[in-house]
């Protein structure tokens, strides 16, 4: 298979099936939820997951905007111009073949005319060590994206400030983003860097822990405190508002502490394609 075909296949599958870890978390949550309405919501979600995986229907009509992260190994000698063409072409073909809804408009304020092919994607490029290329996708739905946000808190606000900012943003989101949700938190850098980090945090395996113990504990604290808000599945109240919190960090300025939150709905649709060094594509 060519690289373009591999990306296309991954995107055709991602719109109908969840990553195994996300699906397992949802099924477990459905068994454990004590609120009646919350349990009804989770049961419907489980039925929906089963129906989409055994049909040609997407999980959700909002198939999302293609959000793509490309990590290029500095020793890979990749032709990034050609790589970008391949990625965009794969997105176009997958959107057509897997019946993605065309959810993208060409211009945001005035005309808002639909591009008709769910393009363009949003692509972030990063140079990393090694000779591999890693292409990761989030199919980013906007019911949840509309609840994503950045706060610039004081450098002295510390952990309590971070927790306060995240809880505030989740409280404002309430039932809008189709909970139980997945949360990505980006801390540090500049305003834009924190936002990108919060998306990279969503790309990590759900419920995986940060290698730094302090941030791993903070992930667990945030998960616990968000669930205590009681928003519940579908916003109808219950034990499960959030399934996973992942944090990514970066050095920042002495005067600042950017905190970005990316909210993802229960349908955390992702795809990862890796190209091993020297591979011809």
């Amino acid at each position: 298979m060519t690289l373009q075909q591999r990306i296309e296949e991954a995107l055709c599958s991602a719109v109908r099936t969840l990553p195994a870890q996300c699906e397992a978390l949802i099924r477990k949550t459905c068994d454990e939820e004590r609120s009646t309405a919350g349990h009804s919501v989770l049961s419907a979600i489980v039925r929906n997951i089963d129906m989409a995986s055994s049909s040609t229907l997407p999980l959700c009509q909002d198939c999302g905007m293609f959000l793509c992260f490309v990590e290029v190994g500095r020793d890979s000698r990749a032709d990034v111009g050609r790589l970008e063409d391949i990625i965009i072409d794969a997105c176009r073909r997958a959107a057509h073949r897997a019946y993605y809804r065309s959810s993208v408009v060409a211009e945001p304020v005035y005309d808002r005319v639909n591009t008709g092919d769910n393009l363009p994607p949003v692509i972030h490029w990063e140079v990393v060590d090694g000779d591999c290329i890693r292409i990761s996708f989030l199919l980013k739905g906007f019911g949840s994206e509309n609840c994503s946000s950045v706060r610039m808190i004081r450098p002295t606000d510390g952990e309590e400030g971070v927790v306060g900012a995240v809880l505030d943003m989740v409280r404002a989101a309430g039932g809008k983003p189709c909970p139980p949700m997945f949360l990505g938190v980006g801390i540090g850098g500049t305003m834009d860097k924190a936002a990108v980090l919060s998306k990279k945090a969503l790309l990590r395996e759900a419920a995986s822990r940060h290698p730094d113990e302090r941030y791993a504990r903070l992930e667990e604290r945030l998960l616990d405190e968000v669930n205590r808000l009681g928003i519940g599945p579908g916003g109808l109240g219950g034990d499960h508002t959030c399934l996973s919190v992942c944090i990514e960090t970066y050095p920042t300025h002495i005067a600042g502490l950017p905190v970005a939150l990316s909210v993802n709905c229960w349908a955390e649709r992702k795809a990862v394609i890796e190209v091993i060094g020297g591979e011809v594509w």
């Binding site: 039925r47 929906n48 129906m51 049909s55 999980l59 959700c60 739905g141 019911g143 579908g234």
Partner: peptide
């Protein structure tokens, strides 16, 4: 009325 969010296939 609330319809189950995200349950497009259903």
């Amino acid at each position: 009325l609330y319809a189950y969010g995200g349950c497009g296939a259903l």
